[in-house]
């Protein structure tokens, strides 16, 4: 059940498999690093929702992976019953997961504000429950989602002497990165430039004062959490066609998403981008020099050391306690 442990490496693995016989070469390394961008995209997508629920609301959401899974299943369901294109399902899977997120906030999270360890436990229970429910509805069998046919093939950046592509990146990976960055920008805009975002920030900074000034804090809480879950849903949709869709798939992304968010720091959204870039590229690079499991161990150890010395993340402004 928990055999999928190499979440952020399976992309890198494909690339490595082709070049295992080759000795160290600059072309292969740069190929690996460019493919690492795909990993960065996935980390950014999966981490973004957490940056909202954890970064803005300080909720330890261990069910984040399950919201990704819900988004993937929403896409699978729409594709198999209505024959919808993957791109078309994105807004719907956002809405579905956001609605479930709102419901969860109303029934569970709301009771536990200010008790981080309890929240952590409850969301872990929630993740088990969501997996169980999805297993009841869709069975434990692996499901497959078709990727859109017009986003296929590779973009060749460099050709070797024989004219075959030496450095290439698949369009789908570029698509993932594009979506991730677009969502990052959109979220930043919503949070910093709109009225709603101002209210969200006000509630985070001083809940009581915001309440006094007439902000409906409980509504803001619900909306913010729902938005974070919706982002996870989009991540699920986009990722669904890369691998199979199964109830425990969310577990694969949970630890990695957390590492991304913790590395970058959550004060600014750019931190997530930085975290995703650092983790994605360093693991791709180390995976090329050594191997995938070693890279994962090294990166996780590095993140642990980082948390030890800078628990607030690399890219935060030092505040006075």
């Amino acid at each position: 059940m928990y055999a999928h442990l190499f979440s952020f490496f399976y992309l890198a693995q494909e690339a490595v498999a082709e070049e295992t016989a080759q000795a160290f070469s600059l072309v292969a390394l740069s190929n690996q690093l460019i493919n690492g961008i795909g990993v960065v995209g996935i980390l950014l997508l999966t981490g973004l929702g957490l940056a909202i629920t954890f970064g803005v609301m300080r909720i330890i959401n261990l069910a984040h992976g399950e919201f990704i899974m819900l988004g993937a299943y929403a896409t699978f369901w729409m594709q198999s019953t209505f024959g919808m294109d993957l791109l078309l399902t994105i807004p719907f899977s956002f809405l579905i997961t956001a609605a479930i997120g709102a419901l969860v906030e109303l029934t569970i999270i709301r009771r536990l504000y200010g008790r981080p360890l309890e929240t952590l436990l409850a969301t872990w229970g929630l993740s088990i429950v969501l997996q169980g429910i999805i297993k009841l509805i869709f069975t434990a069998q692996l499901k497959y989602v078709k990727s859109p046919p017009y986003i296929s093939g590779n973009l060749t950046l460099l050709k070797d002497a024989q004219g075959s592509p030496a450095i290439a990146i698949s369009y789908y990976r570029l698509f993932i990165v594009t979506i991730a960055i677009a969502l990052l920008v959109l979220t930043g805009y919503l949070l910093n430039k709109t009225d709603l975002g101002r209210q969200v920030r006000a509630v985070t900074q001083n809940r009581d004062m915001a309440k006094c000034l007439g902000v409906n804090t409980s509504l803001i809480d619900m909306l913010t959490f729902a938005y974070g879950c919706g982002l996870a849903g989009i991540a699920g949709t986009v990722i669904s066609s890369l691998k199979s869709v199964s109830p425990p798939m969310g577990q694969d992304y949970l630890v990695d998403a957390w590492m991304t968010v913790v590395t970058g720091g959550v004060d600014k959204l750019v931190g997530v981008l930085a975290g995703a870039f650092l983790i994605g590229e360093s693991s791709s690079g180390i995976a090329y020099l050594l191997n995938d499991p070693t890279a994962r161990v090294i990166v996780l150890a590095a993140v642990i050391i980082l948390i030890r010395y800078k628990p607030e993340g690399l890219f935060t402004i030092q505040k006075r306690g």
């Binding site: 928990y2 913790v262 191997n291 499991p293 161990v297 642990i304 948390i307 030890r308």
Partner: peptide
């Protein structure tokens, strides 16, 4: 010795234990 002698607080320690468990699993399998 590494984590308790620092300013790391409750929830982060839990996240560190998650990472340790995940890293060691990968290591033992590899």
């Amino acid at each position: 010795w590494f984590i308790f002698r620092s300013k790391v607080s409750g929830v982060y320690i839990t996240i560190i234990t998650l990472a340790i468990s995940s890293a060691l699993t990968t290591f033992f399998i590899s």
